[in-house]
Amino acid sequence: MIKKFFDWLKQPLGLIAAGIVFLAVFSAFAYWLYTTQQAPAQPVPGFPHKTHVAFGIQCLYCHPGASKGPAAGIPSQSKCWGCHNQIVKTRDSALLAPLKDAVLNGESLVWVPVAIVPDFVQFNHRAHIAAGKNCEDCHGDVSQMGIYQNPQVFNMGWCLNCHVETAGEDQELLIKLSDCGTCHY
């Protein structure tokens, strides 16, 4: 039975069939790999960061936690609606229907965090802002983005490079910034 199958595969028709199967599996894998590299779907599809930045809204207006504590925070729908409610064009826009529904029904918009670190990394925004880092140093040029996408992979080598550069010749700061316990506990 198996020998018959292999004999059939060796014919031209069998080779073509094997090629088609291989291509199908390969392209399915390639598509799966592609989907893992895409920004996740957000509750408001196509949320335009660039429009908000173009209106002159500061990062810290919507993400105020960045200067105060570990998490920058994602604005509540009441903060969004506070502005959008007063602009006729956005109040009745179909694009903002998810926001309007959430506000009227008293539900929350569940945004999907994109700039994340693993659980074993303890990151604090405040210390980085206080050290003079700007948002775009890590998060890229958000003024050109729609839905946020990480400009680079947030891994330890990338973090540590900046820590060592920041410390420079200051040995005490270098000990603090290259200490395992500064981020992992």
């Binding site: 000990i175 200490d179 395992c180 316990g181 500064t182 992992h184």
Partner: peptide, 10 residues
Amino acid sequence: SQAEKLNLQV
């Protein structure tokens, strides 16, 4: 840990 003088577990 050289900074905190503790035994760390990473």
